[in-house]
């Protein structure tokens, strides 16, 4: 069954449907959270919160507004970003060190993952953006920086960063469209 159908069953309190849904989405949810949060223990914590929130709030999913997977990954991304920002606020330096320490392990693990063609295609399409478009998009989405922080890091005016983000996403859509 597709995630969309499962989510509707879950909204009705179907625990078996939730187990099936877990099988479908736990990988994407966990992978995304870990990509943003980095720290393995915290990633697990955030992923657990997200997955439990799916159960609690499944009734709020509205198929008219998009696919279940988009809904779920948007939720996961929001929670991951919130966590990484509060961690950063708590101690910018510690966070940097933790990230350095975890980075190699992270790369190693992702390499083992069989995300397949889609992953290759996303990378391919990211490569086709201009450097500034790519950096603006990835610093925001994968690293959880606000567009103000992105502007600071890239030494660009705020307006330019906003435009690069929009152009980057639009170009990504054009490129990815072929593989959808």
């Amino acid at each position: 069954m597709e995630a969309d159908e499962l989510l509707v069953l879950v909204a009705g309190g179907d625990q078996k449907a939730f187990e099936d849904l877990y099988g479908l989405v736990s990988g994407p949810v966990f992978g995304l959270v870990r990509r943003v949060v980095r720290d393995p223990a915290q990633s697990e914590e955030v992923a657990q919160e997200v997955l439990l929130e799916l159960w609690r709030s499944a009734g709020r999913f509205d198929p008219a507004r998009g696919s279940a997977l988009s809904w779920i990954l948007t939720l996961a991304h929001r929670r991951a970003v919130d966590r990484v920002r509060s961690v950063r606020a708590a101690g910018e330096r510690e966070e940097r060190e933790a990230r350095r320490a975890h980075h190699p392990a992270f790369d190693q693990v992702t390499e083992e993952v069989e995300a397949g063609l889609e992953r290759e295609w996303v990378r391919h399409c990211l490569d086709r953006l201009t450097a500034l478009q790519r950096q603006s998009v990835t610093l925001a989405y994968y690293d959880g920086y606000t567009y103000r922080e992105v502007a600071e890091r890239l030494s660009l005016p705020l307006g330019t960063v906003k435009t690069r983000m929009r152009d980057g996403l639009t170009r990504l859509r054009e490129c990815l469209g072929g593989a959808a």
């Binding site: 625990q15 939730f18 187990e19 877990y22 736990s26 990988g27 994407p28 949810v29 966990f30 992978g31 995304l32 870990r34 990509r35 697990e44 992923a47 657990q48 997955l51 439990l52 159960w55 998009g66 997977l69 988009s70 990954l73 948007t74 996961a76 991304h77 693990v109 992702t110 993952v113 995300a115 889609e118 992953r119 996303v122 990378r123 998009v137 990835t138 989405y141 994968y142 929009r166 996403l169 639009t170 990504l172 859509r173 990815l176």
Partner: peptide
């Protein structure tokens, strides 16, 4: 529309979740 694009970025990050996570989530559910 832009959010749908952003979500495409998520797909390249999928990774198997730890087995213990499943037990914890299902028990909590």
């Amino acid at each position: 529309a832009l959010s749908e694009d952003a979500v495409r970025l998520a797909w390249s990050t999928a990774a198997p979740a730890p087995a213990a996570l499943r037990e914890r989530v299902l028990a909590a559910v």
